[in-house]
Write a protein that binds this DNA or RNA. Structure first.
Lengths: 332, 332
DNA sequence: GTGAAAGCGCTAACAC
DNA sequence: GTGTTAGCGCTTTCAC
């Protein structure tokens, strides 16, 4: 059996309460008792029981995070930022990977709630199909959405201003004299894909850039799907647009790969843009012109919202859209 | 306040015990009571309290995992594999990122132990400096090391047969007629770096490939450090080796980038090899020749060891080295 | 088949 | 400053 507070107290010759007080630093204790308890604890290898502690205190000092896919470097960057920020408050982060599956996502959400985390940060993998689970979780514990969000304003959200992002990208293309552009995105319905598609269309209209339904290629947020999409543009021959705007960097990396394989020069024959600014973006050939997401800033805002006292104005559905920054490299 | 079992029982008109039996499916209950409890539970939105449950049952059905860096795609691939395997047993995985910091690693390990996870999977970021924390955690809960391991045989380990991996890579180079090779690795002391360096040296000796201290470049497991290392080889001019063997794919990607930027042709002027077979490895220019780690197999073995009944022969320090597979692409 | 009661290990009143 | 007492919400004997 694991050693308990009672064991420590017994050995130190004090009451359980006193032992608790020194080990949890909750109140001042006489130097003698202090020393005795500490000594007994180390001698016994006392590790504490966080489960009992959590049950009694009704809090765990842990926050849960659920991301659509841990294989997507953008989300790991986000996780990294959240962890780093969280660490300053002495809490730990439990990360769960939904693996792009709403069922798995729902399971993780329920599990985190049941485990009594003090808060949840989630990027719901799919719009409406994620809604029920997010609403359910939000009913039990403070929850804020990061990057993606479900349609209804059931919980706060922090993410990128996708409209501005698309504006920056398309504006850059216009500046280069591009007059026609295609769009590659993930076909799954979620807030990111929707906003970016709409933003792309608007921006093209504004800058007088021609678009065409045949140039809108649905995929998933993976390099492999980007390769497939890129191949489609190669097949198009001279009917292809002067640029391909991608909804994220993974797709752009794949598209780039396929276009180059198809013998096209980037950006001379086709310009390519991404979105995220992954670390890899600068190491592909040619280096990717993209838009950077302010992940650190996002993490800070998310935790600020999460820690908002429940008493203060809990207007649910606060939306914080952070501004992106254009990163010009060689691809466009 | 959250709704408890008592609330459900009250509303269903049964005892707490009966409600518990229905909700935990622990014993058969009369159909009437069964229905009443289930109805009351949904009406009240009962979510259960995993903390109380865990305290009483002395288990959490959760396993913790600590990786050196979530920014390294190899570890996320590993996490993915472990999660996928774990899911089949109905348990959840809590992932912690040590961010290459032994202090953070130790904190996470302690936190997981205190939180009563049923098991821990850890890839210790640094050899000896990780030992104390790993030993401490292993003393409290079943623990197995994955990929990296601390020097002492304090806990089981599952990983790659690094010697064989280096043999495959160097053998491939020899096959191509390479007669001299440099080595780029992370300078931090851990089992992976040590084994791979030794394996490289041995294999070169066996295949009659010349090495040189000046060609051994220490770095960290990042693309950026690979770029720096690659630049060093460019500076070497004609003194450079005919091949650069990298201890992982991130380094190889960076080295490739720098060599190309330096005007060298790969593999004609310099061959480059990696290790891991990240998804990204096939999309760099030129596609990377590397060695694949059997992540799925690793995950299975890790969980098998973790779930070994404590009663059975607990010979600590079982080491399972899985065989790698050479993946030949254009870079070597 | 059902319920009363004990208790997992800890913290927080509340006395002293 | 210290200890006694009463739970946190649940599962599990043990009677009925």
């Amino acid at each position: 059996m694991a050693v308990t507070l009672a064991d420590v107290a017994l050995r130190a010759g004090v009451s359980i309460t006193t032992a608790s007080r020194v080990l949890a630093r909750s109140r001042t204790v006489s130097p003698g008792a202090q020393a005795a308890v500490e000594r007994a604890a180390t001698e016994l290898g006392y590790a504490g029981n966080g489960v009992a502690r959590a049950l009694r205190r009704q809090r765990t000092d842990a926050v849960g995070m659920v991301v659509p896919s841990i294989r997507n470097p953008f989300f790991t960057a986000l996780v990294d930022a959240v962890e780093r920020t969280l660490q300053t408050t002495g809490r730990v982060l439990y990360l769960c990977d939904a693996r792009d599956d709403v069922e798995v996502e729902a399971r993780h959400l329920r599990s985190l709630v049941a485990r009594g985390v003090d808060g949840i940060v989630v990027s719901p993998c799919a719009d409406d199909r994620s809604t029920a689970a997010v609403v359910e979780a939000a009913a039990h514990v403070p929850l804020v959405q990061l990057d993606r969000h479900v349609p209804e304003p059931v919980a706060d959200w922090v993410g990128l201003d996708d409209r501005v992002a698309m504006d920056l990208v398309v504006g850059r293309l216009a500046e280069r004299g591009v007059r026609s552009a295609g769009f590659v995105t993930a076909s799954i319905a979620n807030s990111s894909t929707r906003e970016r598609a709409a933003g792309f269309a608007d921006a093209c209209a504004r800058f007088g850039i021609r678009t065409d339904p045949r140039w809108t290629v649905p995929a998933a947020f993976t390099i492999a799907d980007g390769v497939d999409a890129g191949a489609r543009f190669v097949e198009l021959g001279t009917d292809r647009p002067a640029a391909v705007v991608c909804a994220d960097d993974l797709l752009a990396i794949g598209v780039t790969h396929a276009l180059v394989a198809g013998g096209l020069r980037i950006p001379e024959d086709v310009a390519v843009t991404g979105l995220d600014d992954l670390e890899f973006a600068r190491y592909v050939t040619p280096p990717l012109t993209t838009v950077r997401q302010p992940t650190t800033r996002m993490a800070e805002e998310v935790l600020r919202l999460l820690d908002r006292a429940p008493s203060t104005d809990r207007t649910p559905g606060v939306r914080i859209a952070l501004p992106p920054a254009l990163v010009v490299r060689a691809s466009a």
